[in-house]
Design a protein around this nucleic acid. Sequence first.
RNA 1: GCCCCCGUGGCGGAAUGGUAGACGCAACGGACUUAAAAUCCGUUGACCGGUAACGGUCGUGCCCGUUCAAGUCGGGCCGGGGGCACCA
Length: 828
Amino acid sequence: MLEMFPYPSGRLHMGHVRNYTLGDVVARFKKAQGHNVLHPMGWDAFGLPAENAALERGIHPGTWTRQNIKDMRAQFMPLGLSLDWEREISTCEPEYYRHEQKMFLDFVKAGLAYRKESWVNWDPVENTVLANEQVIDGKGWRSGAVVEQRKLNQWFLKITHFAEDLLTSIDGLERWPDKVRLMQQNWIGRSEGARVLWPLLDSAGKGIGEKLEVFTTRPDTLFGASFCAVSPQHPLAAKLAETDTALAAFIAECNKAGTSTATIEAAEKKGYDTGLQALHPFIEKWTVPVYVANFVLMEYGAGAIFGCPGHDQRDMDFARKYDLRVSCVVAPKNEDAKDFAAKLESGNEAFTGDGVAINSDFLDGLAVTEAKRAAIAKLEKIKLGTGTVQYRLRDWGVSRQRYWGCPVPIIHCEGCGAVPVPDKDLPVKLPDDVTFDKPGNPLDRHPTWKHVDCPACGKTAVRETDTFDTFIESSWYFARFCSPDSTDKPFDKKAAMAWLPVDQYIGGVEHAVLHLLYSRFFTRAMQACGYLDLKEPFGGLFTQGMVCHETYKSPEGQWLSPADVTKSGETAVRNADKVPVTVGRSEKMSKSKKNTVDPQHIIDTYGADAARLFMLSDSPPERDLEWTDAGIEGAWRYLNRLWRMAAAARDIGARELPAFASLSGNAQGVVRHAHRAIHGVTEDLEKFRFNSAVAKVREFSNAIGELTLDDDGAKAAYRFAVGVLAQLINPLAPHIAEEIWATLGNANPLVDSAWPKHDPAMLEESTVTVAVQVNGKLRGTITVAKNADKAIYESTALALEGVQKYLGGKPPRKVIVVPEKIVNIVAA
RNA sequence: GCCCCCGUGGCGGAAUGGUAGACGCAACGGACUUAAAAUCCGUUGACCGGUAACGGUCGUGCCCGUUCAAGUCGGGCCGGGGGCACCA
């Protein structure tokens, strides 16, 4: 049982409380059912916020982080989580990250990690690389400086090596939400197509002895080609720019624009005609112009495309802008090809649907799929292309120019290149004496740390000063939990194989792709290096919804915290001056909107059980939860009521439950209900229907509350029922459950007790009440013996006054009897 | 633009194709109390008729279909949310 471990921000928030409550319910439930449960906790302790704190407050990131861990651990305690704190790990400690360094070096050996020059978002003020999501409108999120595209040497993990396996194995992740599986599929983005080679000619029509490789998913539309285009970062573009200053300027402009989503969206499609011509692979002596275009991505496919404006909207836009030929080579089956082609070629809409090839020589008449196949066959025959599979997924760049992360264990030597730090010198520890008074990476300007001798030749060399992406730590922590004290190896293989894969993993959907995909990759990479024998780290996955709250805005337009606002009905006023405030829609609790509720305060006021119960009862766990004061009050009131029932049960005194048959009808009813509740709650907990489980528990409490204690049998039944109640709420609200259990005089703690079992015989009823419909409309109900035959159902139903009224004296046309379900009478 | 999910009372939400609205919140009425809090009891989908018990009609975003029977299945709209996004 594992929940995604938290970043130690220093403050517990409601999202944590929900996440860990859900996990704890499962952990306690499974333990009661007799499973051996491992439920550990740790800290995802590297990361940027620590450096920001250092920058803003002059605290060392390590000091800040370790203090936060201490504070947060203390905040976790009152929640009553059944965590194994003996296995606690913290990823910022060398005991943890040293293994990561070793694994990385093994990955390098295995060809799963490599170094290459790549284009990155570079913030010239902060002197660091920015992730795409840190680039807003082409500017650095913190410095506001225009982000540049720079070529930098970066380490990559070869996640694409497993692209096909990562994709096909998704089918086997049956206990993962479909949504997440789909998101991963889309992210990996497999597409089948062809690589096509276009011999290049100069403007005079003479061959330059080179071929341009492009990737396409539509080789069937090759006869509709009207241009080729390469990425501004394509080697061909760079080569041509050496002698073409206008092109060089164009490329520089493209690189300046950045690669953030927003920038790309805003950017207009632009191209630069290189003057080169590309020779069509199928049509003799036919050429198309070659452009450098800003919308062609270097990282995907071959970094170059051929444009077929008739059947790709983007190419169509480009063709219209630069006045290129548009020709139709696919027409829908049931339309007149000539008319369709004429319409398409004069319009601005590309046709991307299915159809039949036209104006395409040997492809004419073939459907799209067949035409693709035929085109690829021909390309392969004339050696100007091959069929290929392309993935959207790219290798994982893991270098970060930051301090608070795991150092990359590499030494750069002028003579030997990138040399791995020898095993005996691991871990490469982060130096503590660093300063944050200047922008950039403190490791880089540390006076001594990076200067070392080359392990290979002994000459002076320098350490790599980049650190790893913090997603690496969280890609294997689940394995570390299996043997957290292992010193020679990251974890004991046997222990890992005994515990893994994680049976139930719980966390937010925001990690649906990155963290979960990285972990799946890492597990495969660890397998390839012999660390374990496993592909998939997480057998079952559950993604919980966010915790939301209404937002409040003052008349001055400032966000207000719920703590500063008093609500009455639909209106709300500011506490300080009673001025009415605007009540906004409910949104995910966040500091920026100030709509957070402090868990500490809630726990102090109502206790952990109330907070847990409310979070479980109000919404299904996968959906967003709306935090309301009224809701937590309700949970609190219910706990009080439970306690009063426990006191009443205690006052009854210990007694055996007499034989069922000797009980009064009401007492029998409660005992039966207990069995029904055990059955229902067990099933709900198995299926993560916690809100429904709480509803059933409350229903059961209501039934107990209605029992009048007028004889010994009833008293015994009451006591019995309260005991069952305690057992059932134990995973949900463990503190009060344990108290009730003890109050009833049980010597052994509830936490060590087995989950109750229902007696199937107790669920059996001798009679059954079913609905009676006439023409599908409810007209009454009948109660008959459980195994009555259909004729009894029919005659009893037809005898109903309400039924007769609607039949109007005529015999029914048809009577449908579904035993134990319904009787539906079709009137004549 | 592409892909996915979701639309049920005043609100959160229940409901293997079979009595829609379980359970809770809020609201209202009552009991207890000098009073309040707490607690307990009751009412609460909409509309129509009836003094009343009660009776009737409509009702799960909208339209169409499948079925004896649709919140649930299929098709088409509308609205909300999420993911990806110049991926060739």
